[in-house]
Design a protein around this nucleic acid. Structure first.
Length: 836
RNA sequence: GCGGAAGUGGCGGAACUGGCAGACGCGCAGGACUUAGGAUCCUGUGGCCGCAAGGCCGUGGGGGUUCAACUCCCCCCUUCCGCACCA
């Protein structure tokens, strides 16, 4: 045991010590202060279940690094944390283990908080919120009532997605590839139910338009996904009158320019007109059975795209309002009821699906658009539909027009003749928020025998979720089995009423929580407008790509509603969004069900928080997925170990010395001192750039390792380095390390004689003079190939550089006897001699 | 099928504006210290040839632009993610 340092690096002791100091000094508590620039940095709040794993920690580490950096940069930093505490797992745990959802949740929260604290994240814990507390969810109810007043919350009977495992309804956004987002292997079923909806479609256009405001600060990927999800289409709703009947089939099309090529009209199997059309038919019974069968089959949404086209020919006809042709009517399995009008015109020559359908059922294929470059198209030779725009042919008065022009003109004519109407439609559906489950926010209405649906008045809020409810996990809300809850008085007439027993989708909770952080104790309003005006918008939001649509679209919607209510005065709540990569183990995301989680608590115990934090930063740039490696983390542990010993070894003779600072003349320093200061400032430039520009913390950590290596390589540092210089270099190193590994940085900072917390210290200033290299290595190429290097002093002219390169014996030899054609010279970098 | 991102040593990754490919770390090899070490320290580490000096090859594949290409352009391949009969 040679030269064991007096002090050794014991993360556990150091980390707890500084966590206490920070708490005592209330360093991370921030209050609104109009005199100071604010910075609101936020990580997506966790659902407190299972274990807190390194996937979570990566998210919070990135946020914490940014928060601490911005604080050192002088910002008034709001950095809160809370709990997305309502949700199904609590209820399932309750059924499985016989424990109250509330108890289960609170236990998990306590554990999560313990671990987060153990990692030393700089949260303002005074602002902690938990969505399952009445003081929080009463505002969910309050928002619901405001939306109800504005007809933005409504009830309707409709076909909804039903997950048989969750035993509840799912929003469209929660259906992934035809399955439940929580149960990938469970196909979603369709059910007819009375449900509460939020009218997000009222904001479809604005949600789409304001994406432009987000272009600067959000990942393109997320914006594209949201655009596609909203799915705007311009088109025409065209009326095809039924022959010999009063009714009309309305069809939606974006390609009215192809209408002369229509061979049929196709209806969705669930189209309301279908039973009526069948009513008079002699083959009614047989056809009805076929349609029924098709409807049942359509449930398997996942393989819908690849399923074979199926059609049922009805015995009625419609007239093409443009061409006057009589067209057959079919029921087709690929027509979606929910989109457009639930009916389409079938144009085989210019739509691939229609082409396949027509091929199978031998419908005529009529070419009505030809490519602009001369060629004609023969229907017989078509192998696939010609879907591009072109020049119209065989289209009556419109023949010869370009598609773009024809669409304009035909839309106008359709409106004038009363056979159609221009329309914009969206793929976006209203947000179904009813859940037939217990552990969520009760929807604040009663059903009165006389008055119908009656909202709960504001002063009666919150509608409390009753405790000790029998949980069945069966397909109706457990609240329906609690008589004291269900039995109510009508708030309007005083008569008998039944309280609504569905609860809200938990995505309601997380759609506005970040506003509550600004004013978490407010008893009279969801938040103060003044405080929100100061803190908003969120400067930086950080979370997983998983929420690209769900949470982030709902949040934008809520913001716009709040603005229209007059609560906030901005259009978008989140200025910048960062989507960090996942932490993988064995190539897949960590999850309890896969059994591949690396627990954060164990990591802290084994290596310490600083090492855990540093590794998640070092292993990959933050936007990329990261494969967890137990081996690689050792490298970070070793680095901190080395750094600790290095600084601790010298701290004793540095604690009373002042750092040299900027005052000292560079010329008065010796070579070794200049080297150390130069490397320190070069590192500072790199690290600062990483923070300001691209958040590649992996290279920041690498830079700090290099600086440490340089220092070690210059040992013994007692010789030839004045204490003031060494102290300056150490201090720079610790200041840069502080956002990433804050505990060890504080400890060493203190060892260097500082009484003030490093967390409050300003970010150091970069001095270009000190970073400048005195001598440079110039690369010499001959015909583009690396042939040598010469050391030169910086700032040499081009001709001088060429001379130096040619003076190198090896280069001279290579060039000898050849003609120098050209010399490309990049000052301070490279000389390329082109010879032949 | 459409949209997006990406492909660099044994591995994670670096190379910022076209200018030394492989920083930093892991792993591996050799050595030092040691009763011992899986602790620590030092050295080496893309491939091939060579005792060495040095040379040739090398960033998914093929072509191109350029004095110079991981980086720019064209074609192709592969992987991941998102959407998926949206009329």
């Amino acid at each position: 045991m040679k030269h064991t340092p007096v002090t050794d690096y014991i993360p556990d002791v150091i980390e707890r010590k500084w966590q206490e100091r920070w708490a005592e000094a209330r360093v991370f508590e921030a209050d609104a202060d109009p005199a100071r620039p604010k910075y609101y940095v936020l990580e997506m709040l966790p659902y407190p279940s299972g274990t807190l794993h390194m996937g979570h920690m990566r998210n919070y580490t990135i946020g914490d690094v940014v928060a601490r950096y911005k604080r050192m940069r002088g910002f008034n930093v709001l950095h809160p944390m809370g709990w997305d505490a309502f949700g199904l797992p609590a209820e399932n745990a309750a059924i499985k283990h016989g424990i109250e959802p509330r108890t289960w949740t609170l236990n998990n929260i306590a554990e999560f908080k313990r671990v987060l604290t153990r990692f030393g994240f700089s949260y303002d814990w005074r602002r902690e919120i938990s969505t399952c507390e009445p003081e929080y969810y009463r505002w969910n109810q309050w928002f619901f009532l405001r939306m109800f007043e504005r007809n933005l919350a409504y009830r309707k009977r409709s076909r909804v997605n039903w997950c048989p495992k969750c035993e509840t309804v799912l929003a469209n956004e929660q259906v992934v590839e035809g399955a439940c987002w929580r149960h990938e292997d469970t196909p979603v079923e369709q059910k007819e139910l009375e449900q509460w909806f939020l009218r997000i479609t009222a904001y479809a256009e604005e949600l789409l338009r304001d994406i432009a405001q987000l272009r600067q600060g959000w990942p393109e990927r997320v914006l594209v996904m949201q655009e596609n999800w909203i799915g705007k289409s311009r088109g025409v709703r065209v009326r095809f009158p039924l022959m010999g009947r009063e009714e009309v089939i309305e069809v939606f099309t974006t390609r009215i320019d192809t209408i002369y090529g229509a061979s049929a009209v196709l209806l969705a199997p669930e189209h309301p007109l279908v039973p009526r059309l069948l009513a008079g038919s002699p083959q009614r019974q047989a056809l009805e059975e076929q349609v029924q069968a098709m409807r049942r089959h359509a449930v398997r949404e996942a393989d819908l795209a690849t399923a074979e086209k199926q059609g049922i020919l009805l015995d009625c006809q419609v007239r093409n309002p443009f061409s006057g042709d009589a067209l057959p009517v079919w029921v087709a399995n690929f027509v979606l009821l929910e989109y457009g009008t639930g009916a389409v015109m079938c144009v085989p020559a210019h739509d691939q699906r229609d082409f396949e359908f027509a091929t199978k059922y031998r419908l005529p294929v009529r070419v009505v658009v030809r490519p602009p470059q001369g060629e004609t198209l023969e229907a017989d030779s078509l192998r696939a539909a010609m879907v591009d725009y072109g020049i119209l042919v065989n289209s009556g008065p419109y023949s010869g027009l370009r598609s773009e022009v024809a669409i304009e003109q035909m839309s106008r004519d359709a409106e004038q003749k009363g056979i159609g109407r221009s329309e914009v439609i969206y793929r976006l559906r209203d947000w179904g928020i009813s859940r037939q489950r217990y552990w969520g926010t009760p929807i604040p209405v009663v059903h009165c025998e006389h008055c119908g649906i009656v909202p709960v008045p504001d002063e009666e809020l919150p509608v409390l979720l009753p405790a000790r409810v029998t949980l069945t996990g069966r397909g109706q809300s457990p609240l329906a089995l609690v008589p004291e809850f269900v039995q109510a008085r009508c708030y309007r007439c005083g008569g008998t009423a039944r309280r609504e027993t569905d609860t809200m989708d938990t995505f309601v909770d997380s759609s506005w929580y970040f506003y509550r952080y600004t004013d978490p104790q407010n008893h009279t309003a969801p938040f103060s407008r003044e405080l929100v005006r100061y803190w908003f918008p969120i400067d930086q939001y950080i979370g997983g790509i998983t929420h690209a649509i769900l949470h982030l679209l709902y949040s934008r919607f809520f913001c716009k509603v709040m603005r229209d209510i007059g609560l906030v005065d901005h259009d978008e709540p989140i200025q910048r969004l960062f989507t960090q990569g996942m932490v993988l183990k064995g190539g897949v995301a960590m999850s309890k069900s896969r059994g591949n989680v690396v627990g954060a608590a164990e990591m802290a115990e084994k290596y310490g928080a600083d090492t855990g934090r540093l590794y998640t930063l070092f292993a990959a740039p933050p936007e990329k997925d990261l494969e967890w490696s137990e081996q690689s983390i050792e490298g970070c542990a070793r680095f901190l170990q080395r750094l600790f010993r290095l600084v601790a070894r010298h701290a004793g003779r540095l604690d009373r010395v002042s750092a040299v600072g900027r005052a000292r003349e560079v010329a008065a320093l010796n070579e070794k001192e200049r080297l150390l200061l130069r490397r320190a400032h070069q590192t500072l430039r790199r690290v600062t750039q990483d923070f300001e520009r691209r958040w590649h913390f992996n290279t920041s950590v690498a830079a700090l390792m290099e600086l440490t290596n340089t220092l070690q390589g210059q040992e013994p540092l007692e010789q030839g380095v004045q204490p003031a210089v060494l102290k300056e270099v150490f201090e720079l190193l610790l200041q840069m390390l502080a956002p990433m590994a804050p505990h060890i940085a504080e400890e060493l900072w203190e060892m260097l004689g500082h009484k003030e917390l490093l967390a409050n210290h300003p970010w150091p200033e970069y001095h270009p003079k000190l970073a400048e290299e005195e001598r440079l290595e110039i690369v010499v190429q001959v015909n583009g190939k690396l042939r040598g290097r010469v050391m030169v002093e910086s700032g040499l002219s081009e001709s001088e550089l060429r001379e130096r390169a040619l003076a190198d014996p090896r280069i001279a030899q290579l060039v000898a006897g050849k003609t120098l054609q050209k010399a490309i010279i990049i000052p301070d970098k490279l000389v390329n001699l082109v010879v032949s």
